[in-house]
């Protein structure tokens, strides 16, 4: 072997030529159909073999491959030449039903911690494995677990590209309230919230930052070549206090801590979407107190009173 490594010359003392030829033949036929002449050419031009193979020897090799479980078939192409191909062999990736069960158990456990890119990669990976093991059910079972199950993968990829470039786009959206409609927005990011995939961006209709369920987007109708800066976007600056230490707070991109006092943290948020902010602050419950501005605070108090009234009316 040392000699081989030094001068790259293969001798009969070094290795089993029969074994080596069988391995070469296996890889040739597993790759695709090969005629006797094509096999001979390959062997003849091979840097270590440099010799042809008789048809009888080829048959012996093919019989040996069949014996170890390879499904070798002879096919005749349009050129009327017979070619050999390995359709199946014992070294293919195979999964038992128990293995599939374990894989889906692990996937179910981690699917919620994955971000959008990881989910896309995992979906593609399982599709690839499904193709290797020739099992469509495996692909569909894994798809059922994925948070991207209702989403067109090509569309998602295009939307992610738009977000990267902060493109101004028109999407056809299937709104539960107003049916199918076109929405123009500047795409910002795609994120998963509460197990759902949202496209975030500045919408031109309401001039505010909003989120759109990706599963409800039918298509990207247009990508504008030139961006128009939406007019009249009204952002508000809200200050709120949280009754918890800063290390326990996960800030959004539009938030920053502007002060701390004992166990209390004051946060500033700038947003054009009051609805999303109200939802966020409601979830904090009694831990959160809005400080500024009064108008937003009063609307929030009115909402809480309506929620309370709802319980006493039922």
């Amino acid at each position: 072997m040392k000699e081989f490594l030094k001068n790259q010359k293969v001798t009969y003392n070094l290795m089993s030529f029969t074994g080596y030829k069988a391995l070469v033949l296996f890889s040739l036929l597993a790759e695709g159909p090969k005629s006797y002449n094509e096999i001979c050419d390959y062997f003849l031009n091979h840097p270590y073999l440099r010799e042809s193979i008789s048809i009888d020897t080829l048959r012996v090799y093919i019989n040996s491959l069949k014996r170890i479980g390879c499904e070798v078939k002879r096919v005749r192409g349009e050129d009327k030449i017979s070619r050999y191909i390995i359709l199946a062999h014992p070294f293919e990736l195979k999964l038992t039903p128990e293995q599939i069960q374990s894989i889906s158990k692990v996937y179910k456990s981690i699917v919620k911690k994955m971000d959008i890119e990881e989910l896309r990669a995992m979906d593609n990976f399982f599709e690839k494995i499904g193709r290797y093991i020739k099992n469509d059910k495996f692909i569909s079972d894994m798809k059922k677990i994925s948070l991207l199950r209702d989403i067109d993968k090509e569309l998602l990829k295009d939307l992610l590209d738009c977000c990267d470039k902060k493109d101004q786009i028109v999407i056809t959206y299937n709104s539960p309230n107003s049916g199918q409609k076109d929405i123009e927005l500047i795409a910002d990011k795609i994120e998963i919230e509460n197990g759902k995939v949202y496209l975030f961006g500045i919408g031109f209709e309401y001039n505010q930052y909003g989120s759109f369920l990706v599963s409800r987007i039918n298509k990207i109708k247009e990508i504008k070549l030139e961006k128009t800066i939406p007019h009249g976007i009204q952002s508000i600056r809200v200050l709120y206090e949280l009754d918890c230490p800063p290390e326990n707070i996960t800030l959004n991109e539009n938030e920053k801590i502007i002060g701390t006092n004992k166990n209390k943290t004051v946060i500033e948020v700038v947003t054009s979407n009051e609805f999303l902010l109200r939802q966020r602050l409601l979830a904090y419950g009694p831990l959160c107190k809005i400080i500024h501005p009064d108008e937003f605070k009063n609307k929030f108090i009115a909402l809480l009173k309506d929620m309370k009234a709802g319980y006493y009316c039922d």
Partner: peptide
């Protein structure tokens, strides 16, 4: 049909790989 002539060395090698 496994009665055709085969090469025992090839079979042994592939079985080892299996």
């Amino acid at each position: 049909k496994l009665t055709e002539k085969y090469n025992d060395a090839c079979v042994k090698l592939f079985e080892f790989i299996k």
